[in-house]
Nucleic acid binder design. Sequence first.
DNA 1: AGACGCTAGTCGATCTGTCAACTAGCGAAG
DNA 2: CTTCGCTAGTTGACAGATCGACTAGCGTCT
Lengths: 173, 173
Amino acid sequence: MILSRIILGLLDLTPMTGADLKRHFDTTVNHFWSADKAQIYRTLGTIVDDGHATVTVVPGTNTPDRLEHHLTPAGREALHDWLRSDLDRQPEREAFLARVFLADALDDDELSALIEQRRALALARQGEFEAIRDAMPEPATRAEHLRFATLDHGLRHVQVELDWLDALEEQLP
Amino acid sequence: MILSRIILGLLDLTPMTGADLKRHFDTTVNHFWSADKAQIYRTLGTIVDDGHATVTVVPGTNTPDRLEHHLTPAGREALHDWLRSDLDRQPEREAFLARVFLADALDDDELSALIEQRRALALARQGEFEAIRDAMPEPATRAEHLRFATLDHGLRHVQVELDWLDALEEQLP
DNA sequence: AGACGCTAGTCGATCTGTCAACTAGCGAAG
DNA sequence: CTTCGCTAGTTGACAGATCGACTAGCGTCT
């Protein structure tokens, strides 16, 4: 459902093939949604079945033929409907917090290692986000502001994660 | 996988039935993991099949019989192994950010409504977290500190979400 | 007595996501 | 010329999660 709406949104920017979409899910959109190749192609199939996109074959010159998907008016409307629909509280799923909750079974060294691993992951994400941000042009249009905001969201959350890790390390007896 | 480990961790505290576990997933553990009734019972089945817990029937007096699950040494070891295993980066999945990313298709009023809805959800979560925190005793043992930390994590992230929403509203042209 | 409702537990269908293997065409390296 | 690697797309099997319906016993309300 959400994946299909994101795909409609990306197709709205420009017609794309499954491979193009996979590239988006690995780069521009990766910080809030990722998707498997197989899943993208299958979802693309149902999008076409629903009449939300049409397919044109673009003969590849030195690559295989590409199936370019074009958003239809019905697809654009489905996207718009979704954007206006009510937000649902989606369930929290934080495997790391589950470990912390149960971590009293670990000794002090193992617990420190757990925290350090999490810090390393957070720092890595921070680096990636900053690299993407620094490669972005200064946001000018509203659309660019919105895209930038999703990155800023990630950066702020990574920062608070790092702060929390510092506090946790200090607090532990 | 993660669900089964959380269940092992909860069974480590005290033997429980599926219904007891469901209560935990709806309350104490809800802020970082939730689970469906059917899923809990099925996972409990595989936990028993794996030899990680044994079942004893506790005859109900004015309720149906309860199937109490007791952690075995093998189960405790599986839990401990998981706690020490390497953290994996888990994929981000933020449906709300997907909407923001694509929200240029909305007019100004619809966009404000989207932001307001998100703020309302964040404030609701903040209220719930604070209520749980205020009902908790001052953490004394290490185990209590760790449980408290998972709540603190939620509170800090909610706060940064609210700050980000404020910033977003100001920035938009 | 009959209708509800609560609790504990079970089941089937379905959806989403993940992994790995696979076809098929082209170009470049050896 | 064969092998290798790249790209685009397809498929089957499976795990995890979700929904709704269901059995069954007991208590209470009318």
